[in-house]
Amino acid sequence: MHSAALEDVPGTFVVELTAFSGPLDLLLALIRDEEVDIYDIPVARIAEQFLARVNELELDEAADYLEMAARLLRIKAQMLLPRNSDDETWEDPRAELVRRLLEYQQMREVVDVLERLGEGRRNRFARAYLPDQPVPVASSAPLSLSLSMLMSAVDRVLRVAHRPAIHDVVPRALDVDGAMLTVRALLALRSSARWRDVVAADAEPWQVLSALLAILELARSGELTVFQPGPFAPVEINSVAAGQAA
């Protein structure tokens, strides 16, 4: 697995980093190369070398390695904390790492077994050889479903599904001209009117909008003035002609 040549330059190594399948693999290789005891890892030294190699990594594949580097540095810091020699509650900060390394090491032995077995099988062709292809998805298997089960399922779905409410949207043009005639007629009768006089309480939105636009239009052309004595007070609509006549 680690066929990559290690150049024995003091302090640094030149390694094919793709030769490692992960941070634990790299860490194990370092421990092996340094011939240190896995139960008594010189964390400071190993962390330094680990970082040296991670620096050579492409950034996007480095994330997993950086996480391990951070872990090593934390353990290194914990090792530096002073402690009483008779402190029985002290736990070796390296214990968790050692556990993971051993577990990983064990798994690597299984990999060797699988590699050997897989290679043996790879060199034997079966009958009716088919090129590697994705396994057919399970959905292509016939459904084990009776007609009555299918019918009752359809029935259940239909009962739950509500018939969608369909709204008929009828475009209705505003009748501003008509509303202007109404306002003019009203102001011809009485010089002053209120909003409520122009628009009935049960008026539909298009009527309200028509009336509003009509009043604004008449105000703009100077046929009437609009006056609101205070906030939220009823708006007074006054005929200009009437005001001039008065």
């Binding site: 798994m107 990999v111 699988l114 590699e115 897989g118 060199n123």
Partner: peptide, 15 residues
């Protein structure tokens, strides 16, 4: 043709 060999990383995951 022989199927492609699995990478070390794939074998680790499989194991």
């Amino acid at each position: 043709a022989r199927p492609q060999r699995l990478s070390a990383a794939s074998l680790e995951t499989l194991a």
